[in-house]
Computed example of a mutant assay.
Amino acid sequence: MRDQLARMILTKVAGPDPQAERARVHQTPGPRWFAPGSPIQRVHGDASMFAGGLRALLLQSMHPLAMAAVSAHSGYRGDPWGRLQRTSYFLAITTYGAVPDAEAAIARVRAVHERVRGANYRASDPHLLKWVHVAEVDSFLTAHQTYGANPLDAADQDRYVEQTAFVAGKLGVIDPPTTVAELRRTLADYQPELRGTTEARQAARFILVHPPVPWAARPAYGVLTATAVGLLPWWVRLPLRLPYLPLTEQTVVRAAGDGLTRTIRWALTSPTLGETAVKT
């Protein structure tokens, strides 16, 4: 049962042959950007990333230009699992992979960004790139500190932000934050630009209410979405018309989210799958 659950999760995240993807990331010889056990590897290798990833998507949708680009070009409705797999591979290869493979992945993403443009936005715009970056980093770190197996201390939280800034700089982000304090200030600086557009609310509804998830998995997915929403600040939820129930979230949702994250972690650390499969 443990292996079946792990394979069901991994085929959605990493594609039809997750073991081959894992070998590609972890077994290709060559130097890596980050040392084993470094903060970025600890955060990106934990099951809390599932909730963090959903939170990041909801938070990112609050920028009208970023959401316009996603709505027009990402194909998240037609191929949501493909988009998830591409994002997961990028995170895995830049966090754990050999440097040439990581650089090749960054070059591909930058080439795609150059082609994505509309009347009033360019995906390669450093300002939009920074928004996507800080929304991701804040979401991954928030989820890890809440549901991670081993939350980071203050120094390692700053180190995590600094390590993610290294990758962001290679993607074209100018002056990304390198400490938690800078991350919080950057998020605050973007707030006047954020609002809940029709496209953002439609994306939230697709992610939370009408996802392409089998009915048998809907209860677990419902816990995951409630967990992700519970990690969002109120100023994101109100424009997206998401519930804000502090008492329920601090008790029922927190307990359910913790239980689900532990279950995912248990499945993805099955001895027959090798070392922490979530790193795929």
Rank of each mutant, 00 (worst) to 15 (best):
G169V: 04
W235V: 02
P100H: 12
N120S: 14
G257C: 02
P233V: 05
A14I: 09
M8T: 15
P239C: 01
L240R: 09
R205K: 14
T11R: 15
V167E: 11
S61V: 10
A72V: 07
R77L: 15
H73L: 08
A220C: 05
E136N: 00
L242R: 06
E162D: 14
A203E: 14
R22H: 10
R254M: 05
Y96V: 10
I174L: 12
L5W: 08
S139I: 06
S71H: 14
T87F: 03
L273G: 15
P212M: 01
A14K: 09
A204F: 03
F34I: 06
P36I: 06
A200R: 08
A143K: 02
R122H: 14
G172S: 11
L231C: 12
D153C: 00
I93L: 06
P31G: 05
A92W: 09
A56K: 05
T142C: 03
L268F: 07
S61W: 06
R159F: 02
P212I: 04
T142M: 02
F90Y: 15
A105L: 00
R201D: 10
P151G: 03
R2P: 01
L183H: 07
R265Q: 13
V209K: 14
L273V: 05
A104E: 15
Q250R: 12
T142W: 02
S124H: 13
L84S: 06
L58D: 05
V137F: 05
G148P: 00
A98Y: 09
L183P: 04
A200N: 10
R205T: 15
R2T: 11
A6P: 02
L65V: 03
E21W: 00
P219R: 07
V109Q: 11
R237L: 00
H127T: 13
V25P: 01
P212H: 03
Y190Q: 08
G37F: 03
Q157P: 04
G82V: 12
Y147K: 01
T251A: 01
W235M: 05
V137S: 01
A20L: 12
I106P: 07
A104N: 13
Q202A: 14
L231V: 05
Y147R: 04
E103A: 02
A105C: 08
D3K: 00
A154N: 12
R254Y: 14
R218I: 01
G45D: 04
T95C: 11
A98P: 04
L54P: 03
A68C: 00
L231N: 11
A256W: 04
G75P: 07
R110H: 02
D156A: 06
L171T: 08
T179Q: 11
R108F: 10
G37N: 07
Y121T: 08
A6G: 02
V180M: 11
A72M: 08
V213S: 00
R22M: 07
A277I: 04
A92K: 08
D158R: 00
L58R: 05
L59N: 03
T198Y: 13
W33A: 07
R201T: 10
A188K: 13
V236G: 01
D79F: 00
